[in-house]
């Protein structure tokens, strides 16, 4: 026996080798243990797929759109000319027609958002604060159900309603477009406000009443300020969806045009992809301004 090694030490090395200190189980178990110990690796593994999607598919296509907006089309051959030019944007800014259409689209988006807000808030309040838990479930389903039907079906349903011989028979035009869009995007306004009101403790409403405030004052000083982030979230949906829409206006808008139509027509009939891309940046820029305005109110901090 080695004189430097007594019996005990020999025993230790013998038993400690594979079984005792190595984690029991196979590679899967070891992988799980590794991930448990390395939170950053775990996080990046979970996020890699969505980040790749966001980066390549989403931001990539937007970047391509912006680049294309500075190209032009050879009027004879119809081929893309991949050279930098401001021409498209100059046309948009100086063209009376485009300015009118942009303003009209903006007006429609604002109007739809306001109409949805006025309808959605009382509805969401009733759902969150007044209805019994059972009724609450049914109301949520009722709000969600229209989302399961196709966009086109709903738009054509409104076309039928509004047609000269239809139930309402108000005819087509900008008003019909606003009405149809308000209907289409209403759930996107109701649900965030409903969620916001759900989070608002009932005791705050009780407290306001207890301190002497009537309904309107309670709404103005307690409910509205505390649910404003939810309203802002809902308005981002209705505003951006309205701004980009071109199908509803095609179906019930009569002869009126919105930004979306200009984009669509330039991709299709006019075969001017760069100009379409330039027009498409207009709602993106408007949305950026809108988000900046919402951000200034502090509403995004509590999302």
């Amino acid at each position: 026996m080695d004189p430097r090694l007594d019996g005990d030490q020999g025993l230790m090395t013998a038993t400690a080798a594979p079984g005792v200190h190595a984690p029991p189980g196979g590679p899967r178990r070891r992988l799980a243990a590794f991930l448990h110990r390395h939170a950053r690796v775990r996080l990046s593994l979970l996020l890699s797929a969505p980040m790749a999607w966001l980066g390549a598919a989403y931001l990539g296509s937007l970047a391509a759109l912006f680049v294309t907006a500075f190209w032009s089309v050879d009027t004879f051959t119809g081929n893309l000319v991949k050279e930098f030019t401001w021409a498209n944007f100059r046309d948009i800014v100086t063209g009376e027609v485009y300015r009118t259409i942009a303003l009209r689209s903006l007006g429609v988006a604002v109007l739809v958002t306001l109409i949805d807000l006025v309808i959605a808030f009382p509805m969401a309040f009733a759902m969150a604060k007044l209805a019994s838990p059972r009724a609450q479930r049914w109301l949520v389903i009722a709000v969600l159900t229209p989302l399961w039907a196709s966009y086109l079906v709903k738009a054509y349903a409104w076309r039928v309603l509004l047609s000269a011989g239809g139930v309402l028979g108000w005819g087509y035009g900008l008003g019909a477009t606003v009405l149809t869009l308000s209907y289409l995007w209403l759930p996107y306004m109701i649900l965030p406000i409903y969620a916001g009101l759900e989070r608002l403790p009932n005791s705050l409403l009780d407290a306001a009443g207890d301190l002497g405030a009537r309904g309107w004052r309670t709404f103005r000083t307690v409910v509205w300020p505390l649910t404003f982030p939810a309203v802002a979230a809902g308005s981002i949906f209705t505003f951006s969806l309205s701004l980009g829409d071109y199908i509803a206006v095609k179906i019930v808008g009569g002869s009126s045009q919105l930004i979306g139509n200009v984009v669509y027509d330039n991709i299709g009939a006019a075969n001017n992809l760069p100009f379409a891309a330039a027009v498409a940046t207009v709602p993106v820029v408007i949305m950026l301004f809108y988000l900046a305005a919402v951000r200034r109110t502090g509403a995004l901090e509590n999302l």
């Binding site: 403790p201 005791s203 705050l204 009780d206 407290a207 306001a208 009443g209 207890d210 301190l211 002497g212 405030a213 009537r214 000083t221 307690v222 300020p225 505390l226």
Partner: peptide
């Protein structure tokens, strides 16, 4: 009478302070 018509005030269990 409604709460705002009564001469009582309440200290709530969760305090119900207005957070904003």
């Amino acid at each position: 009478l409604a709460p705002f018509e009564r001469d009582v005030n309440t200290v709530f269990q969760d305090y119900a302070l207005f957070p904003h």
